[in-house]
Nucleic acid binder design. Sequence first.
DNA 1: TTAGGGTTCG
Length: 675
Amino acid sequence: MSKKSPVKYVSLKDASGRCNVFGVVQFCKQPVKTKGTDYLMTISITDQSLAAGDKLVCLIFHPSLEALPRLTAGDVIRFHRLKIGTFNDKPQGEAKCTLGCSWLVFGADTEQLQSSSKNFSCTDDDRQKKDMTSTCKELQQLDSSFLADVWFYDDHFLTYLDMKPAQFIKLCNLHAAISKDPDTGQPFTNTTVVELVIHRGTSYGRGIVFLSNDSPEVQCLKKRMKEISGPESTDTCIINGSEKIQSCGDEGCNRTTGEIDTNIKQTRPSAAATRGQGEETSENAPRPGCSHWDNAVSQSSPQYASTDQNSKIFNNENTLKMNSLGIDRIHSDRVERKEMENTTLRQGSKRKPMATKSDYEQVVASGLTTQKDSFCRDEQESSEILPDVIVISSGSTDSEKHASLNQSNSMEVVMAEPSLSEYGLLDTCNSQSLESDSNQSLYNESIQSCFSLPSPGDVCMLQTATGHRHINRTSLREILDYRVPYKFRVLAWLVDFYPNTTDVYDFVQELCPRCKILKKIGREDSEQKKRKKDVRVVSSVTSLAECLGGDFGNWNFEVELNDREVKLCSQCSTEEEPVPVELTYVLRMVLTDSSNCFLPVNLWQENATKFFNGIKPEKALEDDKEFQNAICTLQDCVLLHPSKARTDVRPLDCCIFSYSTPFGTNFQLFDTILA
DNA sequence: TTAGGGTTCG
């Protein structure tokens, strides 16, 4: 009797005609009764030969429902004599016992095999199974080495609010896609970011399901996690693949709430993206699921996500409150990267002296138009705060900076960390009520809550940074320590803003784009201009000189340009080149976050217009209805208002860039919209 | 024969 030749298997990539294959079950649909004689089960399988996400769809037919395999994702299935056809120009497997096809299932969680026939061989298949399951495991390990953010939209956000730390959930129809640059529509070139999204609605079974700890799915998941993590899994958890933190034992954890571990090791680039490399153990640090996890991760030093070409990272933010993983900052390509000469800001907040109460009041009150002279200090005072900062846009040339200096168009920026009591006096408009006993407890509560991590409900932001969702957030404290210039994304609360009025004329000023002179405009001036009839009509800026002929005596001459009044800068305009001034919003905000820092940020020109939902200052002056709505929204975001419960105030998801000036570092908001 | 992992895109 001749020995049976071994069964030859082909990879799924090479599967064609009738062949024998192994595959890891990726998806399986419940069997359905066809209009014909059979039941149909649709599955997709994959193996190492296929790229991530690729699969072979297989249809398993059988007249008996019970005779179909019971599959779950992760099982390994072996097909003999699988017929490979095509459907929609894609290969498709067809398994019909009537055509001689047979299948054998190796369950991921059971040693018991399922087979379409009573007589089946398994000797060689065992090795194949081993290979397959190890491949499957490898894939699982790859995925498990990251903590990933998940974005919940619309109705799913309400479900998200009910989530509790350490709760097991099932995300149905989670959409994974490579994030694309909203400007170009193309994937980011420096860093490939996968975003995980539960889109709105419930089509395709989309949703979040809460699982009980003793449910079979959770038991299975725990078992898999244990397998993947190895024998250490009982007392360690993997953070970003580079850190292992000793468990606090969850239920048996003896750490007290609020106890903060600051020893979590900071890992510089590449390590964060290198799985299983350079593990660091932090004694006593909690693990996810423990009530102390949030505090611990919020206070830990950041890791830096790899920005190597083609490296793959998952975005980590506050969505699941595990934002310890990485800071991936946007490098400013508009501003030359250089170290700041004046290192006051970068010396770290601990080395900076506290600001005084009056300092801080003036930070808020000074505004962008504060003249240098009006806020000068003697030498002793100056040594305790940062020097004056002149407002220069990042695109300014040296000569422009010089011109700006000569115009004394300076402003005051104080980078400070006031104590709580000092902080309490920030709200100058409500100083009386702040001092009252009835409001004190609420006020103190607000103070305390602003130094803790946001609760899930709080991370729903009314304001959102646009187009930079893939950028991990940075704390304000870290911003102060980082080199200049740089861009950051932050989650912060609005402490106050200036001007603290609702009058659009307080927000809009004339700005010369050349010398950066800002000039307030009065309501009366504006109305007078409207009535002014003695204007000349020209068609473009370049034709202004021509229009004006030899009359250069008054460069503040106002002309009408495309039905709009134009005013020329008297300092910068020349015969050859008139420089019209432009209208801009000018405002300043003071932000704070859980890192216990306060950061004044400025806003003007296009960034300010964008912030106000694209309402141009010209339009706001004409009809300020929309602008008033925006200001109301802004007022609603002010953190420290005694009349507000903490939950009323939403943080701002905003983008900030830093830049050097001759006197220090300044910050501006960009790509942030007041929603 | 039957029916057929594809869609959401903030």
